[in-house]
Nucleic acid binder design. Structure first.
Lengths: 213, 213
DNA sequence: TAGATTGTTAATCGATTAACAATC
DNA sequence: TAGATTGTTAATCGATTAACAATC
């Protein structure tokens, strides 16, 4: 009997590779390919086959010696680890162009992230509909959170409002923030923050371009 | 005489922290604070003071023993390393909601990234103006690149067009791609790719929420 | 069986942290 | 001078890679 190894927490570096494996496996599935080797996966992703095997080994290993990995099975198992398929409800705060773009994005719902409301403070935006959701005033957030399960708040507000809105959101008990403001957030320990710093990413790109890796 | 140490290439991990230092120093400057210690910076960013000093030491050290770092000077030096202030010209491919949000974003130009054109293939979008730029047809890209300095192409196209558009862009000689499609790009060695995988980020957030770090 | 490829341990590499002398 | 904080080396920690036995 082989036991799955959940003893020690999985490192963040491994977790961040899982969505990439998952996407690649989705592609293979669509193409009707049923098996894949660690070498194939590594080549595609620019990492070593050794790292691929090591990553899966963290969870007990999903392959068959001499054969490789079954695409369908591996896809499903990684999906389970990542919690894809369990629906999480998300609100978007900030209905500017970025907030609206997030609200309209197709890919999130497919992976279990359901957008259930959009908030802003600008009166001229209120009542406008993005997809099926009317933009609500931020004053209504408290009531909304009291009456709905909100798992994640996406912050697409101007940088200088980020701290304030993050404070509000955590006071209301929301435990996960997807932050797009170019600021550092200091949130309570039990609140998970994941930031997308667009400008940082662009600056690193500019640096690498000038200093050709 | 102290020589700046440019002997070995700086690790990517260090470079990715520089924009964060830079942003923090910008804030301090605005607040009129003139000195900062490695301890202050570390606390703010959730890293050790040792790491902060080690990072700056890569470039020869910018501080004064017993005092700390001069905010204005450090800000300027990090800016120089990152190449902030040298203008880079960027085009956006894909004028959907995400492409438009990028085009409208205020923060890029401030850091030297100038958006000079937007392209799409949908005829109903052509001619529409985003900021001062008219949306052009992708067929015009080749001419445009021939007549303008294009440093960076931001790819905000549907995932299934990503590879094709990346191929086009590299064939036209553009050396840096800021990729928003949820795909792995295989580009020539001399092309720099920086990807923002929104869905990956969201999935990791969901994972961390379920598995409370 | 021969060939292929994983599972798994060990070795290496690189990044982070600790420590403290230097010096403002 | 005493106190503070960097510059810099060494120690530690963690992540990646190599290697190969296991086994399909």
């Amino acid at each position: 009997v082989k036991l799955v190894k959940y003893e020690k927490p999985i490192s963040g570096a491994v977790i961040r590779r899982l969505p990439r494996y998952y996407r690649y496996l989705s592609t293979l599935k669509e193409m009707g390919i049923s098996k894949v080797s660690s070498k194939d996966m590594g080549n595609r992703m620019g990492i070593t086959s050794s790292q691929v095997r090591q990553d899966f080994f963290c969870f007990g290993g999903y392959g068959l010696q001499g054969y490789g990995y079954d695409v369908e099975f591996l896809h499903e198992e990684i999906g389970k680890i990542l919690g894809i398929g369990t629906t999480k409800q998300m609100i978007i705060i900030g209905a500017g162009s970025l907030g609206q773009a997030l609200a309209k994005h197709k890919g999130f719902e497919k992976r279990g992230f359901k957008i259930i409301a959009i908030f802003d403070v600008k009166s001229e935006l209120l009542g406008e509909k993005i997809n099926e959701h009317e933009i609500m005033h931020l004053d209504q957030l408290s009531d909304f959170v009291a009456n709905n399960q909100v798992d994640i708040a996406a912050l697409a507000v101007p940088d200088n409002f980020g701290r304030e809105v993050a404070g509000l959101v955590t006071r209301l008990g929301i435990k996960a923030i997807w932050n797009f403001a170019a600021i550092e957030l200091n949130t309570p320990e039990d609140v998970i923050v994941e930031s997308i710093h667009l400008i940082d990413s662009l600056i690193v790109l500019g640096y690498n371009l000038e200093n050709k890796k």
